[in-house]
Computed example of a mutant assay.
Amino acid sequence: MTAPVKGPASYFPSIEKKYGRPVAEWQELIRTSPLTRHMELVNWLKTEHGLGHGHANALVAHTLAGSGGA
């Protein structure tokens, strides 16, 4: 039996459903953004792409943790 997904990744199915893009695309946008700080990226996703705070925060946290970012 598979353990339930926890942490930021638990938001991924609803992010894909609500915004119509795979998580990999969002992560690529985050990685290629000239912004590097967590809250700068969260605010950018909210204002430029219309994500809610929780979804933007989850994507940024997971992406930066995986890439050793700020």
Rank of each mutant, 00 (worst) to 15 (best):
9 A>D: 06
34 P>H: 12
68 G>D: 09
23 V>S: 02
15 I>D: 00
16 E>Y: 01
40 E>Q: 15
56 A>E: 02
43 N>T: 06
33 S>E: 04
63 T>S: 09
69 G>L: 13
45 L>E: 02
19 Y>W: 12
29 L>H: 04
20 G>W: 01
9 A>H: 08
33 S>C: 10
23 V>E: 06
44 W>E: 10
67 S>L: 11
18 K>H: 03
68 G>M: 08
36 T>W: 02
13 P>W: 00
70 A>W: 10
12 F>S: 01
25 E>R: 11
10 S>H: 10
26 W>E: 04
60 V>D: 05
21 R>S: 01
51 L>Y: 04
47 T>L: 15
44 W>M: 13
15 I>W: 05
54 G>K: 09
60 V>F: 10
1 M>I: 06
64 L>Q: 13
39 M>F: 14
8 P>G: 08
8 P>F: 06
4 P>E: 09
70 A>Q: 11
42 V>R: 07
20 G>I: 03
28 E>A: 13
44 W>I: 08
8 P>E: 06
36 T>C: 04
25 E>A: 14
19 Y>P: 00
55 H>E: 13
69 G>W: 04
21 R>N: 07
61 A>D: 07
30 I>E: 02
37 R>W: 06
59 L>H: 07
27 Q>T: 02
68 G>P: 09
69 G>R: 15
19 Y>G: 05
31 R>F: 01
50 G>E: 06
30 I>K: 08
44 W>H: 14
44 W>V: 02
14 S>V: 12
38 H>F: 11
7 G>K: 07
11 Y>K: 13
57 N>Q: 10
11 Y>S: 05
28 E>L: 13
61 A>L: 13
27 Q>P: 02
35 L>T: 00
10 S>G: 05
39 M>V: 04
2 T>I: 08
44 W>F: 11
47 T>A: 14
69 G>F: 11
3 A>D: 10
56 A>N: 02
42 V>G: 09
58 A>K: 03
63 T>Y: 03
15 I>M: 07
64 L>V: 05
67 S>F: 09
3 A>L: 14
53 H>M: 11
10 S>K: 14
31 R>K: 15
7 G>P: 09
15 I>Y: 04
43 N>C: 05
45 L>F: 08
16 E>A: 13
33 S>K: 01
45 L>G: 01
25 E>G: 01
46 K>N: 00
54 G>F: 05
4 P>N: 01
40 E>V: 01
22 P>D: 11
38 H>G: 01
55 H>A: 15
2 T>L: 15
47 T>V: 15
34 P>T: 10
70 A>C: 05
52 G>D: 14
50 G>Q: 03
2 T>D: 14
16 E>R: 12
13 P>A: 00
38 H>I: 03
47 T>P: 00
69 G>T: 07
66 G>Y: 11
63 T>Q: 09
46 K>C: 06
16 E>C: 02
67 S>N: 13
6 K>P: 00
35 L>A: 10
31 R>T: 09
22 P>M: 08
54 G>I: 05
23 V>D: 03
9 A>K: 15
33 S>T: 06
59 L>T: 06
37 R>G: 07
42 V>K: 08
6 K>F: 04
66 G>D: 05
31 R>Q: 12
27 Q>C: 08
4 P>M: 01
39 M>R: 15
17 K>H: 06
17 K>S: 11
15 I>F: 04
22 P>L: 12
21 R>Q: 13
48 E>A: 14
8 P>H: 03
64 L>W: 03
6 K>E: 05
34 P>Y: 12
50 G>R: 07
40 E>T: 06
13 P>D: 00
